[in-house]
Amino acid sequence: MDIKSPLPFETSDKAHANLFNRMVNTLVENDNALSQQIAGITNENLFILTGDQAIQDASVSGEEYPIGITLMAITESNDTGYPTRYGFVKNEKINEYRFVQYYYGNGNEAGSYFTSTGIWFRQWYIASGWTEWHKISGFLHTNIGTTGKQLLTKGEYQKVLFNRKIKDSHNNFDINNNRFICPENGMYLVNAGVYIESFQRYANFELSIYLNGKRYKNIAQQRQSPVSPSDTLSFSLGLYGAANVPANKGDYLEMYLYVGYDGDVSRYVSDNSGWYNYFDITEIGGRNFPRV
């Protein structure tokens, strides 16, 4: 950028004219020097940290990062604290008290790398260190059905045998154990339903979400007490409900069903399709906040 010098100021008062012109010349010289410095700055010099400057270990203190906006490429870092193996980091640091770090998954969704896409952020504060990673993009969705009928044991809580994958975006459902395994800390929205083959007798049915093998929330309950009891007339019903479940990485979610009824004729979870029997999980948040 060319900076043009202004025409000299002229007046009959030579002393004041020279003083003013020297001041203007100094400003022009400073502008030219600044222009030359700016022209020598490239994006690579300003933003990208490479080599030893690129911090591959996410546990490194925020004090080690330079002030300003910087970018770093991350490779093979799944064991060092970044959310995925490949990606890049943008650091926005004003000082030791105002520092936010964004992690961008590599974006390669070919083959086994499908889960590498996503965006996370965390913050640094000198007195408390790093926060947990907070996921803000790339959430998973899982929808699981059943196969065949499932015999229900009278008077017991029993796991619903969800074992047919309809959708499992990040491959987190274990069909051998009929459970969803949380890939990271966060909030999960669980929708579930079962259709039960029953009869015209008194019965009590309860559908519950279990977290790590313990009942977390009851999401549906149905009692029936027909006026004219019968062990031959069918009285089938559906149990459907939903709840938010905060969980940590490695926690697992399962659906359990309680069945109590009069008489000795067995009840079953039906073999209906996925719009009757389903276990649907959607990741909706990237942090599991502590309980009060």
Rank of each mutant, 00 (worst) to 15 (best):
V269G: 02
G260N: 15
N212D: 15
T26H: 14
G81L: 02
F162T: 00
F121N: 01
Y252M: 06
E10Q: 13
N106E: 04
Y157S: 00
V259Q: 04
I67S: 00
I166Q: 14
E76D: 07
I196A: 05
P183Q: 05
G129A: 04
L233H: 13
P66S: 08
Q200R: 01
Q36Y: 03
G186S: 08
F20S: 01
V160R: 09
N106F: 04
G40Y: 03
G62R: 11
S270K: 01
V292N: 12
N204S: 11
F199D: 10
D2N: 03
T75G: 14
A192F: 08
A192H: 08
R22M: 12
L233R: 08
D31I: 05
E64D: 15
W120H: 00
I281R: 00
N143H: 11
F173S: 07
F114Y: 10
N177T: 10
N177K: 12
H170Q: 05
F235Y: 13
N172E: 12
Y240L: 12
I144C: 03
A192W: 11
D174P: 14
T153A: 11
I175T: 13
G213H: 06
E156F: 05
R122L: 02
N30V: 01
M23D: 15
E10R: 13
V227R: 08
L19F: 11
P290F: 08
S208A: 15
I196T: 07
A33H: 01
N288D: 09
K214L: 03
G285H: 05
K217T: 12
T42P: 06
N176T: 12
S169G: 09
Q56L: 13
T84L: 02
P8Y: 05
H141R: 11
N176D: 12
E254G: 10
K135G: 03
N91D: 14
A54C: 01
L237E: 12
A58G: 04
E64T: 15
S208W: 08
N272D: 09
N218F: 09
L27F: 15
S234L: 15
N244C: 01
I74H: 04
A247C: 12
W130D: 10
Y125L: 09
D79N: 15
E156W: 13
A15R: 14
V60H: 02
E283K: 09
Q36K: 09
M23L: 14
Y261A: 13
V160N: 05
N191V: 05
R22A: 08
E29D: 04
V89E: 04
G40D: 11
E96H: 13
S137F: 07
S228W: 01
F173C: 02
A247M: 08
Q221V: 11
G118C: 02
N178E: 04
N32Q: 15
